[in-house]
Design a binder for these strands. Structure first.
Lengths: 339, 339
DNA sequence: TTGAAAGCGCTACCAT
DNA sequence: ATGGTAGCGCTTTCAA
């Protein structure tokens, strides 16, 4: 009745060999006579023996599992990153586990304390912590994605946020816009901050002074995208263009514009950052700063696996891979300067 | 230079106590004199000692980690289920790892063979396999969600798919529709099959013979929702109503209707299954069969944790929890029977 | 080619 | 209250 797990010992006993020999045939690298190999294989099959990977891991200190830690699993941007990562990892023989931190530092820390955090071979991390210290305490191969903190002690895969925002803003300017609003969230991480300053610089270079009333800063949430768009459009001097600094803010903006009975590209011009379903759906399509989401996961996974296979000796220089963004133009920006 | 991991032994040595005592203070349940406890705690802190959870797990056979295995992590339905599960698990002291199988049986099987699959304490599974055999071979506490196979040997949390489809179809009928189309995918699992038969029964009860040409069966994908909607609307005798049997098929249908320059609730009536962003966005909103997605994750997690804490002795009866659905009516169904 | 045995780092039982 | 020690199931020298 007691359904005792069967172990390597049982196999050895039944085969009249030592556990060492059984271990050898399981791992294949050591040589074993053809006769005994076959015998053992047969018994393994009969007994339906599956080795305890944990015991093995205790000895050779690896688990063949990676993890990807993201702030929220609901955001399509992160699921795309995850998708890219999982695929690469799979081909390299790793299983990937996904962990969502709810953008909460405590939950993030808890993961690293957990069984999981302790036993993965490497981590791709979209971090929530704002202090380099936290990252420096991570002692295993880790790649930071999207959000990067300087002096964190790990390699990173990020995109050119500054340039994305800069290009978007310039595009507005080229089309004759001057009252250009930006809706963003806290500048806790480099990504958001860079986007703001990209906007800022593009404005100044165009000899446009950004009107502080046109900078709406809240959280990186759809509801704030909605709320601020309404506020902007109902203000005394509404903008002619809005730059929505991430995908969900853009979603909120689109909904607000619809509810205000305004028309994108006509009553108000709009550019979003990162693709999102609604921006693709509405007509005219919304121009967005496109970023290679899936590719980010792929690059991160490759860097990570590389690092696991050949641990850098001593203090290798940190690598920061910056992937390019591209302004995907549709018709959500009205040309004000054409007759 | 060799950054050797520090272990319980190091702590014991430094504190002049046995490893047993150190183990005791770590786990707290055995009693230790206040003096030594403090001394040991201090040393643990100084040495920055973190116990190796894997070694502990080898002894007490639990890892405090659960996993939730879903077919695709991009689908908002699954991320909602995951969200519910993770929250409950967290409160109970479990870390949850998310695994996506890409709706591929091989990948699903691979998970169970992996380090992860072997070492979680329990699993919430939206399975991809179609044979009960596969599930019966899973030897740990497992709860099947959404897709349920009879004789699989595990408890389940599912919804009343039949009734959802039945109610939707009835609603069409009550509004005077007779040419009611259904777009669905393969009937590999109970959920999809039940939806079809719910539709079927509602039709027959209403003395309407379902026109085979109005049953479009492809894959459960957005592109098929799109393609079939176009086909239906361009056919000789288009339907007046379409039942889109899952969330992404509904998304495809909405896009197709938009591209055909038709109007929902006017030129064509539409009901979807499960909420989706587009159905919420378009005006008029699309009526959908709402299901308690997050709640499914919550219930599954609770059942799972319960089962882990008190393993059922012998052959307990299997529990299948069926959650209710609700037709969320908006204005996407035209009333044909009003003057 | 194979076996014996020493761990991996921890827990839990049995002593003291 | 504390220590000694036998495992957990496997891998990997070292010998034979």
């Amino acid at each position: 009745m007691t359904n005792k797990e069967i172990t390597i010992k049982d196999v050895a006993k039944r085969a009249n060999v030592s556990v060492a020999t059984v271990s050898r045939v399981m791992n294949g690298r050591d040589r074993v006579s053809d006769a005994t190999r076959k015998k053992i294989l047969k018994i393994i099959d009969e007994l339906n023996f599956v080795p305890n990977t944990m015991a093995a891991s205790m000895v050779n200190k690896k688990t063949n599992m990676l993890s990807v830690v993201v702030p929220e699993i609901q955001n399509p941007f992160y699921t795309a990153v995850i998708g890219g990562m999982v695929e690469i990892a799979k081909h390299a023989g790793f299983v990937t586990l996904v962990v969502s931190t709810n953008d909460d530092e405590v939950e993030e820390a808890a993961f690293f304390e957990s069984f999981l955090g302790k036993n993965v071979d490497g981590i791709v991390l979209v971090g929530t912590h704002k202090d380099a210290e936290f990252y420096r305490n991570i002692r295993k191969p880790t790649i930071l994605v999207d959000r990067y903190i300087n002096d964190c002690g790990h390699d990173g895969v990020i995109i050119d946020n500054f340039r994305g925002a800069y290009d978007a803003t310039k595009h507005f300017v080229e089309c004759g816009h001057e009252r250009i609003a930006i809706i963003d969230g806290a500048h806790d991480y480099n990504d958001g901050k860079d986007r703001y300053w990209g906007y800022h610089q593009a404005m100044h270079e165009s000899r446009l002074t950004p009107d502080p009333k046109l900078h709406k800063q809240g959280k990186w949430l759809e509801e704030d995208g909605y709320r601020f768009t309404v506020e902007l459009m109902q203000s005394e001097q509404p903008p002619t263009a809005i730059f929505a600094a991430n995908n969900v803010i853009c979603t909120g903006a689109i909904k607000a514009i619809r509810d205000l009975n305004l028309h994108i590209g006509e009553d108000i011009s709009l550019i979003g950052f990162d693709e999102n379903e609604l921006a693709q759906f509405v007509r005219p399509r919304v121009t967005v700063v496109g970023r290679p989401t899936r590719e980010m996961g792929i690059q991160a996974a490759e860097m990570l696996i590389q690092k696991i296979k050949e641990p850098p000796k001593g203090q290798a220089k940190l690598k920061k891979m910056i992937l390019d963004v591209e302004l995907m133009k549709f018709d959500s920006v009205k040309k004000l300067n054409e007759s």
